[in-house]
Simulated assay, not measured.
Amino acid sequence: MTVIVRDLRTTEPADTAAFADVRGRALPFLVSTPEAVVHDAAHAVPEAHVGHLVAEADGEVIGTAQLGIAHDSPVPGQGYLNVYVHPERVRRGAGSLLVRAAEERLAAAGATRLFSWVLDTPDDRAFAERRGYTGSRSAHFLRLDLASGTLPPLREPPAGVELRTVADFADDPRPLFALDAETTADEPSDVGAELDDYEQWLAGTFRHPLLDHALSTVVVVDGTPAAFTAAHTDGGARYSTGMTGTARAFRGRGLAKLAKNDSLHRARAAGYTEAFTGNDAGNGPMIAINKWFGYEVCATEVRHVRELD
């Protein structure tokens, strides 16, 4: 059996479906679709050097890699690669070939430091360490049973506070961009991000096919968007929190809980049965909020880093 690595063919539905399927099998707590894969590839800015690779064996896609440069980081040369192999097709060399190809492309694009999320299992961590990667911060995947679990009861918003949806801002999303930019800047991460391109945000985030405008809740205080939760859905039964955040001036008032509880209740009413989210392991306040909702950790990833010569 010969394994080859090639670029994803984003114009071929069967190829993008295979890409999404392999990634979904390797990370069953990730909500994605072939349409989302195509969108991500189509709306990447040139300076991000985004790439999607597949490992193919005898005509079957058995592994995937996403790679790029964190162009929105204030620190130059920060590259990333995330490699996943079909759980029933491991130990055939696909992961090694994908890592090597991705590293070569990132080095050619000017990367000096590489970051990769690795599942916190002995085999996955050993694979990364053999290739010169060192573990750093960790993050959890969490799952909530929406079908039979018990959500906290809905409560009436305080005076001056309104619950709206992202759909309500369709005519002018700029206030949401400002809120997203501020909260993203404060997210715990090895690679910081600064959102400063409104048009790119519109194309890559606001119009992303996973973002459910009707289920994403925005908390408005005295007319100002103060907190939000972005709901990602796959059009089936799976719901995922893409981001939850509160503007600095409004923190400590329970607004993130208010937003998330509203969105989760409406998602359950719409027929979604599973909810997923992710948390940096050091983000104690958000972990506490998610445990309050009933989320349970279902997997952990460790960010690994490699310095290039």
Rank of each mutant, 00 (worst) to 15 (best):
D168V: 01
L114I: 12
F115R: 08
F141D: 03
L114V: 09
V166G: 00
A167H: 06
S116D: 00
D145N: 13
F141H: 07
R113W: 00
P158A: 06
P158D: 09
L146S: 10
V166T: 02
Y133G: 01
R143N: 02
P173A: 13
A111G: 10
F169N: 03
V118Y: 09
P157A: 14
D120M: 01
G135K: 00
R143V: 14
E162N: 10
R137W: 12
R131N: 03
D120E: 12
D145T: 11
D172V: 09
L151Q: 13
A139T: 04
L146I: 12
G110E: 08
H140P: 02
D123F: 04
A111C: 05
D172T: 15
P173F: 03
F169M: 04
R164N: 11
D168P: 07
P122F: 12
P173Y: 06
S148V: 05
R155N: 10
P175N: 04
T134K: 10
F127S: 00
P153Q: 13
L119N: 02
T134I: 10
A147D: 13
P122W: 13
L146T: 07
D172L: 09
Y133P: 03
F169Q: 06
E162V: 00
A167L: 06
R155I: 14
R125P: 02
F127W: 12
L176H: 04
L142W: 00
A111R: 01
S116M: 08
L114S: 04
A128S: 05
V166L: 09
V166W: 00
E156N: 09
T150V: 15
P158L: 04
P157T: 11
W117L: 08
G149Q: 12
L163P: 04
G160D: 14
F169Y: 15
H140S: 09
R130Q: 15
R130P: 05
A167M: 09
L151W: 13
R113T: 12
L142D: 04
L154A: 11
D172H: 14
L154C: 06
A170G: 09
T150I: 15
G132I: 03
L119E: 14
V166H: 04
H140K: 07
R137Y: 09
L163H: 03
D172I: 10
L146G: 10
T112F: 13
F127T: 02
P157D: 13
F115P: 00
D145H: 01
P153F: 03
P152Q: 02
E129P: 05
D172N: 14
L179I: 02
A128D: 06
E162H: 06
W117G: 09
D123L: 08
G132L: 01
T150A: 13
R125E: 15
L119V: 12
E129T: 15
L151Y: 14
G110I: 08
F127N: 01
L119F: 15
L144D: 01
G135V: 03
G135P: 07
V118E: 10
T134N: 10
D145C: 08
S136T: 13
L163K: 02
P157H: 11
F169R: 07
P152G: 06
P122I: 13
A128G: 03
T165S: 15
Y133Q: 08
P173W: 09
E156P: 02
T165H: 10
